[in-house]
Nucleic acid binder design. Structure first.
Length: 307
DNA sequence: CTCCAGGGATGAT
DNA sequence: ATCATCCATGGA
């Protein structure tokens, strides 16, 4: 199979896939292998050109199998549309970055993260993965994601690599708590199973929630077991394209308190949220992701490590 | 060995 | 409304 070439200016594939927003892409020499929905994908980058291969995703595929969930059409979309949509190549990145506040901390993060995009993840996959993320390092979230995929997901092949689709809510709901704990979920197993049941029975209609306002969507997400404000904001940002949503984790809180409030003794969570909303504005989620990635990689480099 | 990680649920002030 | 504690697991 030959590559599909996609023009992708102002995009950094490696930064995007290694910034802690998505956890299942695996490096292979020059590029990455993973899945978009149920489809196995290889992708690499040469300057402004993205080269992609999608097994079973060619437009000429007869209409029997591998219909993707993107847009819920029966026919698989052309590779270029699938990949460009997933990586959000249509986001006006220059405009987004220009909307960030102009302070030294944000300037450094914006410069460091050039080309990093907030991708469009599938809703259930994103929600389930972030339920597994609480009090876990990125490396371990990757392990959990892979374990769940290998244990319950459909196996696919791309070149000579094996990749695994993320299991459906129905499949996870059928799993026992012990099976989930075997995937190293710990106390998160019960939350994942509980949410999977609500999604699979239709009581939580993730697709229909796209029509809700930010506040209503956050409220619905927070009603799910294992989902609080932080994970709800992650899902809103990474799967519902709510670019204003600003997840506050230990990294971001550290950055904010040290860089923006080093003077102030008392900064309640309530006042912090008000500040974020006003200061970072309508693309606050992008700003947050840039601050997060910059802080994390800086820390990684300062603790001199050899791979 | 200890410390900590893209937190949330619960119960006590 | 804010705060303390517990929840499993593995990388550093």
């Amino acid at each position: 199979m030959k590559f599909t070439k996609i023009c992708a200016p102002d995009f950094d594939l490696e930064k995007t896939l290694d910034s802690g927003q998505v956890f299942h892409w695996q490096r292979t020499g020059n590029g990455f292998v993973g899945t978009i929905g149920d489809l196995p994908v290889y992708v690499d980058q040469d300057n402004d050109i993205l080269r992609a291969k999608v097994e079973g995703g060619a437009p000429a595929t007869p209409r029997t199998r591998c219909a993707t969930k993107i847009g819920s059409q029966e026919l698989a979309p052309p590779v270029v549309d699938l990949v460009a949509h997933y990586f959000a190549l249509d986001h006006p990145l220059a405009e987004i970055c220009d909307s960030f506040p102009k302070d030294p901390v944000m300037n450094a993060a914006r410069d460091f993260c050039r080309g990093l995009r907030i991708i469009r993840q599938l809703k259930w996959e994103c929600l389930a993965t972030f339920i597994c993320s609480s009090m876990k390092q990125v490396a371990h979230i990757r392990q959990i994601s892979l374990a769940l995929r290998k244990r319950f997901g459909d196996q696919r092949k791309i070149d000579n690599y094996l990749v695994y689709a993320f299991p459906s809510a129905q499949r996870v709901a059928r799993a026992s708590e012990k099976q989930l704990r075997d995937c190293k979920l710990g106390y998160r197993a019960k939350n994942l199973c509980g949410t999977a049941r609500l999604v699979s029975c239709g009581q939580a209609d993730l697709e229909a929630w796209s029509a809700l306002s930010d506040d209503e969507l956050r409220k619905q997400l927070c009603a799910l077991p294992g989902v609080g404000p932080k994970i709800a904001n992650c899902v809103m940002l990474f799967a519902y394209e709510r670019l204003r949503a600003f997840p506050i984790d230990v990294w971001i809180e550290r950055v904010l308190r040290q860089q923006y409030f080093s003077r102030r003794r008392k900064m309640t969570a309530q006042r912090l949220r008000e500040f974020l909303e006003r200061y970072f504005g309508k693309h606050g989620g992008y700003a947050q992701q840039y601050l997060f990635h910059h802080a994390r990689v800086s820390s990684r480099n300062s603790t001199a490590r050899t791979e």
